[in-house]
Amino acid sequence: IRKQWHEDITQDLRNHLVHKLVQAIFPTPDPAALKDRRMENLVAYARKVEGDMYESANNRAEYYHLLAEKIYKIQKELEEKRRT
């Protein structure tokens, strides 16, 4: 379902936000690492998460909020795993 606010969101912005999700899960300073085949699954997962939020959000603010919440949860989980 195409929503009115979707018209304001460019593909570049969506790609940028997918990249932010990927960085939250696997922070790497090396952009070449993103071309690694093992990263493809991670990028696919991040695209799916972003797509789900894009579809479920009712406006741009909610879209950003859902993504920020997801990134926060991912970082929290990773922190907890590092501690144990």
Rank of each mutant, 00 (worst) to 15 (best):
T10Y: 03
Y64W: 02
Q4V: 07
P31H: 06
Y64K: 12
Y54Q: 02
K20N: 03
T28C: 15
R83S: 15
I9Q: 00
T28K: 12
R14Y: 06
L42R: 04
L42P: 08
G51F: 11
D12G: 09
M39I: 13
L17M: 15
N15R: 04
L13H: 11
K73H: 12
T28A: 07
L21A: 01
H6L: 04
P31Q: 11
E62R: 02
A68L: 06
R82M: 07
Q4D: 15
M53E: 06
N15D: 15
V18Y: 00
Y54R: 04
Y72H: 11
H19D: 14
L78C: 12
R37M: 05
R83L: 13
V43G: 02
K81Y: 02
K20W: 01
K70P: 01
Y63C: 01
E69S: 06
D52Y: 01
H65L: 05
K70N: 03
E40S: 09
L17E: 15
R37H: 12
R83T: 12
R82E: 14
E62G: 02
E7R: 07
F26N: 15
I71K: 08
P31C: 12
M39Y: 14
R2T: 13
H19N: 09
A57Y: 14
I71A: 14
Q23H: 14
Q11A: 09
E55M: 07
K81T: 07
D8V: 02
A44R: 10
Y63N: 00
A24M: 11
E40D: 11
H6S: 03
H65T: 09
V22Y: 02
D30H: 05
S56F: 05
E40L: 05
L21G: 02
A61H: 11
H16S: 12
P29I: 08
E80D: 10
Y45S: 02
V43Q: 06
D36T: 08
N41C: 08
Q11M: 05
H19Q: 11
N15V: 01
N41G: 10
L66G: 11
V22M: 06
D30T: 08
I9H: 00
D52N: 09
V43S: 03
L42I: 14
R2I: 11
I74W: 09
K81G: 10
R37T: 11
L21D: 06
L17R: 01
A46Q: 04
R60D: 09
N41L: 06
L67D: 05
Y45K: 10
H65R: 12
R2W: 05
V43A: 04
F26A: 15
Y63V: 00
A46M: 03
R38F: 07
H6M: 04
D52W: 02
R60W: 03
W5L: 08
T84E: 13
Y72T: 15
E50R: 04
E80H: 05
V22W: 00
T84R: 15
N59W: 00
A61G: 08
D12K: 02
Y72D: 14
K81M: 06
E80Q: 08
K73I: 08
H6Y: 05
K35T: 13
R82I: 11
H6R: 13
Q23W: 06
E40H: 10
K48L: 01
H16A: 13
L66A: 08
K48Q: 05
V49D: 06
L21N: 00
